[in-house]
Design a protein around this nucleic acid. Structure first.
Lengths: 223, 223, 223, 223
DNA sequence: GATGAATGAGGGTTCATTCAT
DNA sequence: TATGAATGAACCCTCATTCAT
């Protein structure tokens, strides 16, 4: 087949402008729009999934023209990935500091649970997590990012906390220390339940988390 | 018929024939093909997700022509829903009977865990579960079906088991009795972990499940 | 930037089917359609140029649906390139045999000129040549193909003819032998003239060619 | 105003301002910018063709903002047409005076050839000619302009020269007198060759032109 | 029934053109 | 005057669905 060096122009080369020369004519107008697009994208992506979401709808929801999206994001995929990253980045730090408080372990765990309820389950970040679960296998680099930036850091923080707890004799077993996934599992399941079954069988996530902690630490209340 | 919130392009007028006029030309040839299509569909859907999967690829994988799919399934959506239903139905019964065995509760739980590992995590059924998690919000009727046919029945069986266990004093608390989700959560997380992070951090699901049961029942082995 | 191995599916991989399994259900129906598309494409491309031509218009002109084009050609570029190749290939052979006739050189040249007038200037092939001139720089591989398959072969044939002519003393000089471009130049110019200026100043190409041959061979008539 | 057969999207209502209200804010700054834009446009148009060239790239190359182009030119098409006209105008005069020198005809022809090599083939004007060849059919008014302002004047000058040459017996035949295209043809072909085949088969245009003149005038050197 | 060529609506992306600053 | 962000019409290409064979 005859191939050419032609016509197909900008591959991933040209990227959405990051900041105009002299600072750009709209200093934080730009940031606002970017946020509006990300917010709209979150809604559309989480309502329809990556493939089925239409940038047309994202634009309408963001109150801009379709082409404008491309002034802020390379393409649909970059929009998706930027969305994931911008939403998840901030929480990890908060989580890490919550886990490193010098309090009785159960108390720390309860703070973390509250944090999860307030900052994740109660916000659109839960949708981000669903998106990662759903689309991760199709976006290996995104899964990798999420693993390194969120999961691995979270696991490390949990392990540090639990090592101390074990020393202090606050834990029944080293099970969650070896498998921090066990600590988080109910949170994940809560997210999934709420998005699939909430209308059929509402779940009292507060109570679920309390029961979970009771299992781990024995009954008791550190509040 | 299961309806969804998704948009349809062409009319839903004619439906896939359910049985040939005069008895059908191929008695169980028909069943074979149906299975081949479902198997192919499972692969494509779980590799790409519902929206991005192409019926063309399903057909190639099933070794048939594209149009043939429409002799067996109404449309792409029906294929997807039939797939979910045909795969998950059978397991529930097995699970129910495993949970109703008259053995020490820990032993029953271990059987159930083995069953999960063997029949779900070790097979393509884990992909079905991922698909439900991913696409459920877009297919409310499917989530409903899954809730009633799988989740609710599973919960009922677990509750029966645990009620007995509580009476017998085999459980530390009534936590999982009130929230059977806690029992299942590590299994869900294992499925997700394997599809997203296995290459970055392999997970020993056997050990994970054992640690989980240790937490619930205290250390010990009922085998 | 996060990259993925994702989503972007078929690059140039999947090619337009070349022939169905059992010969294809439409034996030469396929060839007919292909021709219809090529004919339509020729019109659109030569009327608007490669970039500005719309496949939509090609489809309408060919009497088919837009998507059908993609059953026959990989993409717009492949259609363009196939067009050039399918049109120019055949003529070269005819030209070569015309040039190798064992006749007085002037007679051979006149046959070639007639051939040019009849088979190129008088047909849509002149548009192909214009297209190559116009788009060649943007399609280097196409220019290469054209150079090797048409130009180089033409030059070789001309050189063979002229070498013989020089031996026989039929030529005034070895100028065109060294620069066969000189032989062809008026033909090229005629094509360009007709497409640009014909309406302002009609050109009698017959007379032009005769005058050209007179210059090369001295006045005389071999017919 | 030059009109074309091409489609316009937005209205042609407002035109590029030709001179600032109260005299214009920048006296010949304006001319400089105009030149910069034209130079940039030449590069982009000749590299990509009219349709595929992007005004964005023109602006970048000219070191201005995209919108600024519209302060100097009506629209893309006007820019293109102004480009052609501004580049070709000047040469014609030079050519005409070269052709009207009172020297032996062969000498005049050689001067003209040198002029062509130096002022056209050796500069970006050759790209202008390629552009006219390529886009002329889509811009009839441009072809008309080019015909009247360049071609017709060139032909007239050539005819005058050759009439004198015939009288003086310096020409073998009246062929080129009747068809001045024959005189120019090798130049055209050289332009095309260089843009298409130079990398495959370099062409010695000097030698080509000399051989051409030898054919017309018989061997000899008037220098 | 089975096939696969054909259809055509749809969506991502581009880019000429406008206009608020 | 100059800027460049914003617009939105277009266009290439895909793919679910149909239907003649």
């Amino acid at each position: 087949m005859i191939e050419t060096a032609t016509v197909k122009r900008r591959g991933k080369g040209r990227r959405a402008r990051q900041a105009g020369p002299r600072g750009g004519p709209a200093p934080e107008r730009r940031a606002e729009r970017r946020k509006a697009i990300l917010a709209a994208a979150l809604q559309e992506f989480s309502a329809r999934g990556f493939a089925a979401a239409r940038l047309d709808d994202v634009a309408v929801r963001a109150g801009i023209a379709k082409g404008t999206i491309y002034l802020y994001f390379q393409d649909k995929e970059a929009l998706f990935q930027d969305l994931i990253r911008s939403e998840m980045g901030p929480v990890v730090g908060t989580l890490e500091s919550a886990l490193s408080l010098d309090l009785p372990t159960r108390a720390v765990a309860e703070r973390a649970a509250e944090l999860f309820l307030r900052e994740i389950l109660g916000t659109s970040r839960k949708d981000i997590i669903r998106l990662i679960i759903s689309e991760g296998p199709r976006f290996p680099k995104l899964a990798e990012f999420y693993y390194h930036e969120v999961v691995a850091r979270g696991i490390a923080a949990v392990r540090a906390l639990l090592a101390r707890a074990l020393e202090r004799g606050e834990l029944r077993s080293d099970a969650i220390s070896r498998f921090p996934q066990l600590l988080v599992a109910p949170g994940i399941v809560a997210i999934i339940w709420k998005s699939l079954f909430e209308s059929h069988a509402p779940l009292d996530v507060h109570a679920l988390m309390r029961a979970h902690l009771d299992l781990l630490f024995g009954e008791g209340n550190a509040k």
